[in-house]
Design a protein around this nucleic acid. Structure first.
Length: 631
RNA sequence: CGGGGUGUGGCGCAGCCCGGUAGCGCGCUUGCUUUGGGAGCAAGAUGUCGAGAGUUCGAAUCCCUCCACCCCGACCA
């Protein structure tokens, strides 16, 4: 709120400081008598040319001495995640407040490259770009009913007349308002509008740098249709477009069937960048296109039924063995033959009901699934367990228990299993449903899927991985169109509610996700398509060797002419520190220009992930690099 | 919001228990030497010790209040 209520002119000293800084960037214009080395003047000249507005962020050549590079040897203590640490160390971002980051020049180049790829592919798909206000009046949100529903995640602000506004966390309301005002006829449909814009969500806990910032850059698109069939067609078009975008970004990703969550509507897919640090667990089937969030993935019963009862039930002493793993090891039986009983209290009219949930020893409870069966529930307290079973947790089981039992599908097909004896220090072996205890009252899917489970589509086994959600597409259907009366006249001249889809991409999050996926002990490894610069030209002994200076400048110019985004490191740093910088920053290709190689007419090439450098004839370097960049 | 933790120069940290001169490494500035993997020597600059109130002759250190930030949980691009 402080930033909102403090007028910018009261931040005078900072403001003036910026002015002074920018003046210093322009000495050739303001102070022509300034003295500088010829190399530096050269650099300033090229900086001035490249700084013209029509040649803005991407493209154009750059010299390292004039670019704002600030790398750190040690990562600030605030960062935990590898991508966050590397972004801070490489100087791509600086933190202003919790979940608020400045994109430094180097980082902004990456962000803009991601943004441009998203924009190009969206344009190719037939979507049309527009830009909506970040600040939105409360009335629209009240009309859709979300002013109160959205909750504290929405930053609400007041203007000088005490009128309510919010800093847009999303734009369904605004776009639907545009559509209802501007679209009158079926002839104007379908239409897909998108924007790339800053959103603000007052996250409960911002973390991981730009991966979960409060202010972030998002591509959000919205489509309008005369029929559900046409929405489905466009949804498929966006699905394909998203696949092209993430492929071009050089990311390993997966489209995942998703819940529709708070935004509502039916059909929905999330796009996840695969990374071990991802916040979401994903189950997928390599043999088919099945993929789902682990919380949602259906755990089907193992194929076939168990072998049937082979042995008699026996009570075995298992002193001190309370975990399934320990019991199985102690008895010399496989973990998959044990059954764990989890005691919960399910909410019921007129008090709670004590329920035993049965899971195979190697499986974990999925509380969301269990709640779908039992309603609201919590774990039972120790005293409640003793009351119901006469025994403390660790040795409990369903044998002799007369209350409600919910068994997971995979437990229902087990035989000769091991479970607690409801007596401290004892377990039962050879337990069979229908013989030693009644069949469970309810059989349901109440566990998380595990690696190797059959895919719900029956086409192979599931594998697990973790992912970072970078995109999400929804079929909104008529949720917002109805609330905001967004209608059109059909061919019969009848009023119809529009079908809508919405399609989001977390542009700034992609930068973090790409780094999670591409890094090593030396730093970031950017894909060619989004690296801040594609090639670093690194001269050895730049200040003293005219041959090196000439060759480096010539190569730099040649690369730029060939359309390759190259930076010339004219800082005359020591070689080790230049190498370390470019490796930390993640520039994918490096060319070293040194007197040693020049004597034989050669330059040294090294890809960011290559173990060894390659000598390349100087005259062939540009061709060589072009091939590298295509392949 | 619940739980855990941290605030000391640009970054990483020590000092706090046991009150008395604010310190180290990196970075920065200047000079000389060095120049194919984060150089060496020398000289320097940079701190309202997160803020406020209190105890005390004296507070980075003890007490109180507040703030900021980070980490673990429920939300989401």
């Amino acid at each position: 709120m402080r930033s909102v209520s403090t007028p910018f002119w009261k931040t005078g000293p900072i403001w003036r400081c910026h002015l002074r800084l920018s003046c210093q960037s322009w000495p050739p214009l303001l102070n022509p008598t300034m003295t500088a080395s010829s190399a530096k003047q050269d650099a300033l000249r090229s900086f001035a040319v490249e700084s013209l507005p029509f040649n803005c962020q991407i493209g154009g050549g750059m010299r390292a001495s004039q670019f704002f590079i600030s790398t750190l040897k040690e990562a600030p203590a605030e960062a935990e995640l590898i991508s966050h640490k590397l972004m801070l160390r490489a100087g791509l971002i600086k933190r202003l407040g919790s979940g608020l980051y400045t994109w430094m020049p180097l980082g902004l180049r990456v962000l803009r490259k991601v943004e441009n790829i998203v924009r190009e592919e969206m344009n190719k798909s037939g979507a049309v770009e527009l830009l909506m206000p970040a600040v939105q009046p409360a009335e629209l949100w009240q009309e859709s009913g979300r002013w109160d529903v959205f909750g504290p995640q929405m930053l609400k602000i007041k203007d000088r007349h005490q009128r309510d506004f919010c800093f847009g966390p999303t734009h369904e309301e605004v776009i639907t308002d545009i559509a209802r005002r501007e679209i009158k006829s079926y002839r104007q449909l379908p239409l897909n509008l998108y924007q790339i814009q800053t959103k603000f969500r007052d996250e409960i806990r911002p973390r991981f740098g730009v991966m979960r910032g409060r202010e972030f850059l998002m591509k959000d698109g919205y489509s309008f249709h005369i029929s559900y069939a046409d929405l489905e067609r466009e949804y498929r078009n966006m699905y394909d477009t998203y696949c092209r975008i993430f492929t071009r970004l050089g990311l390993q990703f997966r489209a995942v069937a998703a819940d529709t969550g708070a935004i509502g509507g039916t059909g929905s897919h999330e796009f996840h960048v695969l990374a071990d640090s991802g916040e979401d667990a994903i189950a997928f089937c390599p043999a088919s296109d099945y993929a789902a969030n682990v919380e949602l993935a259906e755990a089907v019963a193992p194929a076939g039924v168990g072998a049937g009862a082979m042995v008699a039930m026996e009570k075995k002493a298992t002193p001190g063995k309370t975990k399934c793993e320990d019991v199985a090891a102690f008895l010399g039986l496989p973990l998959t033959q044990t059954v764990k009983a989890i005691a919960v209290m399910a909410e019921k009219e007129g008090g709670n009901e004590f329920v035993l949930l049965l899971l195979r020893g190697d499986h974990d409870l999925n509380e969301i699934k269990a709640q779908k069966v039992l309603g609201e529930l919590r774990f039972a307290r120790d005293d409640e367990i003793v009351d119901a079973l006469g025994c403390k947790a660790g040795y409990i089981g369903a044998v002799g228990f007369s209350g409600r039992v919910v068994a997971d599908r995979s437990v229902a097909v087990m035989s000769d299993c091991v479970c607690g004896a409801n007596e401290e220090g004892y377990h039962l072996t050879g337990v069979n449903f229908g013989r030693d205890l009644p069949q469970p009252g309810t059989v349901a899917d109440i566990r998380n899927v595990v690696e190797g489970d059959p895919s719900p589509d029956g086409r192979g086994a599931l594998e697990l991985c973790r992912g970072i959600e970078v995109g999400h597409i929804f079929q909104l259907r008529t949720k917002y169109a109805e609330a905001l009366k967004c209608t059109f006249l059909d061919e019969q001249g009848k009023d119809q509610v529009m079908e809508m889809g919405c399609y989001g991409i977390g542009v700034s999050r992609i930068v973090g996700a790409a780094i999670e996926q591409g890094h090593d002990e030396r730093g970031i490894i950017f894909p060619d398509t989004i690296a801040p610069f594609t090639v670093a030209v690194v001269p050895m002994n730049y200040a003293k060797s005219e041959a090196v200076r000439t060759a480096a400048a010539a190569l730099h110019a040649e690369l730029l002419a060939a359309g390759i985004d190259a930076i010339l490191d004219d800082r005359d740093e020591r070689p080790g520190s230049m190498f370390a910088d470019w490796e930390l920053i993640g520039i994918p290709h490096r060319v070293v220009v040194g007197e040693r190689g020049l004597k034989e007419g050669k330059l040294e090439y090294k890809g960011r992930s290559d173990a060894e450098a390659t000598m390349v004839t100087a005259t062939e370097m540009t061709t060589f690099l072009k091939q590298k960049l295509c392949g």
